[in-house]
Design a protein around this nucleic acid. Structure first.
Lengths: 341, 341
DNA sequence: CTGTTAGCGCGTTCAA
DNA sequence: TTGAACGCGCTAACAG
């Protein structure tokens, strides 16, 4: 009555509701928690007032008091614009939201410093756990967070310098299979275009390619390797170089979809005829008008598995014995064949 | 000394550091805030202990005490798997992270109930503001949140039933321009394939198409309209129907990229020759081997603008006069022409 | 320069 | 069935 200034009250508190309903804050708290030990009519009155005031209890204060975590999980990826990672995010969110958790997403843009600060920010906000696709091999900040007791799940690459649950793609197997399909088609001079082996995924796929060749009794020809392209333009240039070689490869394996698309463009531009295999499926792969074999996998599932591992880890703090053994999941790949139109 | 159980202490507190450094909690607090009024050597000692213990201050408790917001912004989208929305998310994050804010993402899957619960969860966690791409026309929960004092920015569609900052795409203009380009090429019977006009975007684009025809003195032919397709398969079926008409359209405008791709597949399958125009750019649009005009726009920019509007709104609480006027931004579209290979 | 008191919004514990 | 005290982790305001 005395002080009803027009200024809109941002977020009424338990006490505001209590005062208005002529009860103690405790009673309001109980009503909101559906505590049965409260008179039905009081409860009704409290609810009415809470509704009228637009009261929403402060989950942050609540979790502070309860001490049981904030209900937030952090997800740190390198590039959300890449459908691969947005699908992964979706998979994570689908799983964790089913457990009442919300996902806080951070994008690093492959930058280590921003990854570090993102992780620190998440820890400072007391997320219950973190799922991360590390930008590089330097994972000391992750190790530190893990040592600090924050459950961490590493996705797409293995943890380095510490141990944690992780979920990987069968990079080696997929690259092997794709390369073998080219060998089976009779190709012997098979080039490689893809990111440098400095990133785990790149290294594994290169190894898969190399091993498949070795199995066929072929030593890989270093002049047919183009290591480094990150985007379609770079990949197209690299491919053009290969095609311009005096003794060019008759087939190409590209270790991710950026490179596959870039290679396709270069092949098209050169008007050459050359077989193509790649890693990572992509939309419209079937209309390129080129025989194409792709090692595909389900990135949603990658996210879901990561989410499940994290949830499992979170659950153990409550229920189980000491820390469960580290789990490492591997997402399989499957070969998809696209033909001529 | 007395109680050093092996159990790892999850998150040491200010007091833990204080005890270990033989100072009061207040001093630790000051050191961590870089308060100059603290003896250099004490500060050094405190920092050393904090480091050793792996102390990270609890930002949630901090924001509770300071009362100035949690440093979190909510972003609610309908489908993160759609590159459009993941780019939007990236744009939002790029802007808000530059202001020390973190983005909490929620995915609704076009489901109104989950949108409602997501928004409530965000409000309960006291996010500083929310950017939302509403799943439908029922936005009462958004109105409620806005009324409760949570700054809201609506993206992609206008707010309904309440007022809020929003950022839209020039749906009408883009659809108009794309349709006009077909008219300029001499087409008179131009079909339409796209989502139902029940969603704002769909309605506006249909209106743009209709208006462009009207400007050319053409009344749209209802039998050449296919309203409803949401994915490429549905769009392909709808397009096939149009092509099978006794008097089929000679050109097609598709109001989003799902429909454009579906239409393309149907046209390809039918072996017909028909001009195509669409809304939303997509990768490999240039290799379809079909003349194609696309009304394209920058969804990163959409996100950035939304982020900026929100940040502006957040800043005003501190600095300015009462609520600033509602701002409505419109992202322009541009016509992109893809030719035959 | 450093410590004490008090309290952000909430919930547990205990008493009435 | 309801309420009062106390504290989660942190910091403003005031001592000293």
């Amino acid at each position: 009555m005395s002080d009803t200034r027009g200024a809109k009250d941002p977020h009424p508190t338990l006490r505001d509701v209590a005062r208005e309903a002529k009860v103690s804050a405790m009673t309001v708290s109980r009503v909101l928690r559906d505590d049965p030990k409260v008179a039905p009519d009081t409860a009704a009155r409290v609810r009415a007032v809470a509704d009228e005031l637009g009261y929403r209890r402060n989950e942050m204060a609540r979790s502070l008091r309860l001490g049981g975590g904030t209900g937030l999980v952090g997800l740190v990826v390198t590039n959300l614009a890449n459908p691969f990672y947005s699908r992964l995010a979706l998979g994570v969110d689908a799983v964790v939201s089913g457990h009442g958790l919300k996902t806080v997403i951070g994008n690093t843009g492959h930058d280590l410093a921003s990854e570090r600060s993102l992780v620190e920010g998440l820890v400072a906000r007391r997320v219950d756990g973190i799922i991360v696709v590390p930008a590089g091999d330097d994972q000391r900040h992750l190790a530190a967070a893990a040592a600090g007791g924050v459950p961490i799940v590493v996705a797409s690459r293995p943890p380095r310098g510490f141990s944690a649950d992780c979920v990987l793609v069968d990079d080696h197997g997929g690259a092997c299979a794709a390369t073998r399909s080219l060998l089976a088609a009779g190709h012997r001079r098979i080039g490689f275009v893809g990111p440098a082996p400095s990133v785990y995924t790149g290294a594994e796929r290169l190894r898969g390619y190399t091993d498949a060749l070795a199995d066929a009794g072929i030593t890989r020809d270093e002049t047919h390797l183009r290591l480094g392209p990150q985007d379609t333009d770079e990949a197209a240039r690299a491919t053009a170089e290969l095609l311009a070689l005096p003794d060019p490869p008759t087939a190409l394996f590209c270790s991710n979809n950026r490179n596959t698309i870039g290679a396709f463009r270069a092949i098209r531009a050169a008007g050459t005829d050359i077989a193509l295999a790649g890693f990572d499926d992509f939309e419209l792969a079937d209309v390129l008008g080129l025989p194409l074999v792709i090692a595909a996998y389900d990135s949603d599932e990658l996210g879901r598995q990561a989410g499940r591992l994290l949830v499992r880890r979170l659950g153990e703090d409550i229920a189980g014995r000491g820390p469960a053994p580290i789990h490492r999941a591997v997402i399989p790949t499957s070969l998809v064949r696209y033909g001529l139109p």
